[in-house]
Design a protein around this nucleic acid. Structure first.
Length: 702
DNA sequence: TTAGGGTTAG
């Protein structure tokens, strides 16, 4: 029985599983024994099913019954192609055409299109496939929708009758310039489609996130050709990564292996990416280890995988392995490494990556430079971040977002707002992240009116719907002005169910403004939404304690213990002389422990003269004396003391920590920055604190 | 014959 997908539109899932059979050629491929033992052992635990059953059923489950396109007559039926101008075709200007071709070959696309304007003005030339091919390259190179429209319009109005090759090129031109509706029309109207046509349209769909439609077309393609190459596999594996469906990715993997493409370099790279994006870094590593020849993309993919899973150290060590293996590093590699350094606060490695970026000729890469802007601003060097930003030859919305967020995080809200406005003057379109950056900047710098103005303009002028994080920023902004009723009203007015972030922002606002009733209300909401999150219990307990309701506080503590929730050890780290030094609270494992503790004591003594009094209150009511003492030696204080002991230069000390900074440490570090005249940057679990001249960029609101 | 595939930044 041949497969006819239309038959399955009204039958059940089980029926499909029982009756679906592929044409013999496909069947043979799918039922063949695994080709090599490594793969077999890896997957032997799972049922060795028909790879396409899963994909097909998965599509059908979502109501994606594949429908064949209507049969086409052999001639080109595209109505636009048929609109041939009834004019006499003139002889092409040979010199002009060859000039356009040469310019396109040298990637001088803009000039090629400028010459094309002469043809457009005169009209009526049949310039031939070679010139059209060059113009297609120019449009793709520039990614210009306007250019595509001009070229396509010229082709249609001058009666160009494309062959299979040129039809595919025209299709690709639309796909690469993001004109997917036009591309789809061209594809549907194509009289003859070959594997390249199918791959082109499917890849375009995957690019824009149309994964389900890509799978639908993939099934139709398979039905037509009973075959597909490594390109198709790579694209469909990318689609399964987009859907985060590891089961579908594994079926494609098995299928690729059975068709002899298991070790194909493109398939392997796509698999590494898919496995890591679907949460299995072990499988990604296995595919990587099995690559007969590891190329740049393979290395980049596995490094990205480790970075994605938060294994930054492992990612860095893979990077050094890559460098030692002699494989060429590219702008992807450097962009990732800079981002990893930014997360680890690893200054030395970031400097090396910055130097490598320039040495290898990627100094003007937009992604790497944006990562650098982010890195320098997180390192406390906002002027350096601005310097990199200003020197970027081209900038996109993401680059602007990075620099605006940088200024905002440093408490320089007015400059962030100025950059935001400059962005408009330079005709750059903001997105939801831009608004998050500017709202957050307004909130840090207490620019209440500007923040409110921007929040309102989001949907009114820019058609960007505020998300939960935008609401959380506004709640914070209102909280800083003491406008708790307005903050609560904003939560109630949100057109969606309030999220934990929004309640957390209201809780902070209530705590800072001393409104225990509202705080309790928000904390209880949080407690209900995230019952496994320990910090919510602690906050609620703290609120009960503060309002003198000790019985309720004790009940919360009991629930916490019954659930077996325990404090995870928190730590802070700082990089000095190319080495990261990690500290836990009360930690005495460091070789310089005695010196560090003496330094903390001396710093505490110094800042006591400026009014510092160690906090006696703790979050947990039954905390003992020893734990109370640990407060004096919290991990961030140890990291600061270590940094001051071991660095002489004026660079900011950069400390990263796994937890939120406590009130006591915040007060202490603020004064330490004042008495030592050093800038200290602390990135805690929720925000960025830039301590300078006895102040903090957060304005003591966190 | 040509053409179509995989990895980065906020």
């Amino acid at each position: 029985m041949e497969v006819s997908l239309a038959r399955y539109q009204s039958i059940s899932f089980d029926q499909i599983q029982n009756s679906c059979r592929f044409p013999s050629s496909i069947h043979k491929v799918f039922t063949a024994k695994p080709l090599f033992s490594g793969f077999c052992s890896r997957f032997s635990r799972r049922k060795w099913g028909n790879p396409f059953d899963t994909i097909k059923c998965f599509s059908l489950e979502r109501g994606l019954q594949p429908q064949r396109p209507k049969p086409k007559p052999s001639r080109n039926t595209n109505p636009e192609w048929k609109e041939t101008k009834e004019t006499q075709i003139k002889t092409p200007s040979v010199g002009l055409c060859s000039q356009i071709q040469k310019l396109a070959l040298c990637n001088r696309y803009r000039e090629a299109l400028e010459l094309f304007e002469i043809l457009e003005l005169e009209g009526g030339f049949d310039v031939g496939s070679s010139t059209y091919d060059a113009l297609v390259s120019a449009c793709i190179g520039l990614g210009s929708v306007r250019a595509v429209k001009r070229v396509f319009n010229y082709m249609v109005s001058n009666g160009f009758n494309p062959d299979q090759y040129m039809s595919n090129r025209v299709l690709l031109m639309h796909v690469k310039c993001g004109m997917m509706i036009d591309a789809r029309n061209i594809f549907d109207e194509m009289p003859e489609k070959n594997l390249v046509s199918w791959n082109t349209i499917i890849s375009g769909l995957v690019d824009i996130g149309g994964y389900l439609e890509a799978f639908r077309l993939f099934l139709l393609m398979w039905e037509e050709f009973s075959d597909c190459g490594s390109r198709t596999f790579a694209t469909m594996i990318r689609a399964s990564a987009g859907l985060e469906l590891i089961s579908v990715g594994k079926q494609l993997h098995s299928c690729a292996v059975k068709t002899g493409l298991g070790e194909d370099i493109f398939v392997s790279c796509a698999l590494i990416d898919m496995y890591s994006k679907c949460g299995s870094i072990e499988d990604a590593q296995w595919v990587f280890d099995d690559m007969p020849e590891k190329n740049t993309v393979g290395w980049n993919s596995i490094i990205a995988g480790y970075a994605l899973h938060g294994y930054s150290e492992e990612a860095l060590s893979m990077f050094y392995e890559m460098r030692d293996s002699g494989v060429k590093m590219d702008h992807f590699t450097f962009s990732m490494i800079i981002r990893i350094c930014s997360r680890l606060a690893s200054v030395e490695y970031a400097k090396q990556a910055h130097a490598g970026l320039i040495r290898y000729g990627f100094g003007s890469d937009i992604v790497a430079n944006t990562a650098l802007v982010d890195f320098y601003s997180k390192w406390g060097r906002i002027e350096d971040a601005k310097h990199v930003f200003d020197r970027m030859p081209c900038k996109n919305t993401i680059s602007w977002n990075a620099v605006i967020a940088g200024y905002g995080n440093h408490g320089r809200g007015a400059e962030a707002v100025e950059l935001f406005e400059q962005m408009f003057r330079e005709k750059m379109r903001p997105n939801h992240v831009t608004f998050l950056a500017v709202l957050s900047a307004c909130s840090y710098s207490r620019l209440y009116e500007r923040g409110w103005e921007f929040f309102q303009s989001m949907s009114r002028d820019h058609k960007i719907k505020p998300r939960a994080m935008h609401y959380a920023c506004m709640i914070e902004l209102l909280g800083q002005e003491g406008l708790l009723d307005e903050a609560f009203a904003l939560i109630r007015a949100a057109p969606f169910q309030p999220t934990a972030n929004m309640w957390a922002a209201l809780l902070t606002a209530s705590r800072v403004n001393g409104n225990l009733e509202l705080g309790k209300f928000a904390a209880e909401k949080l407690y209900g939404m995230e019952p496994e999150k320990l910090s919510n219990y602690v906050v609620l307990m703290n609120i009960y304690n503060q309002s003198g309701r000790l019985k309720e506080a004790a009940a919360v503590l009991q629930t916490l213990r019954k659930k077996g929730l325990r404090m995870l050890p928190v730590c802070s780290w700082i990089e000095v002389n190319k080495r990261s030094h990690v500290f836990f609270s009360g930690d005495k494992s460091h070789v310089q422990t005695d010196e560090i503790y003496r330094k903390v004591d001396s710093l505490v003594h110094q800042i006591s003269k400026r009014g510092y009094v160690p906090e006696q209150k703790t979050l947990l009511p039954d905390v003992d004396e020893q734990e109370q003492r640990i407060l004096l030696y919290h991990s961030e204080k140890l990291a600061v003391a270590f940094g001051l002991l071991n660095t002489m230069n004026k660079s900011p000390l950069q400390i990263v920590q796994t937890h939120r900074i406590c009130n006591d440490c915040h007060n202490a570090i603020k004064l330490i920055a004042l008495v030592t005249r050093r800038e200290i940057v602390v990135r805690d679990a929720s925000r960025f604190h830039h301590f300078k001249h006895g102040n903090c960029s957060c304005g003591d609101y966190w």
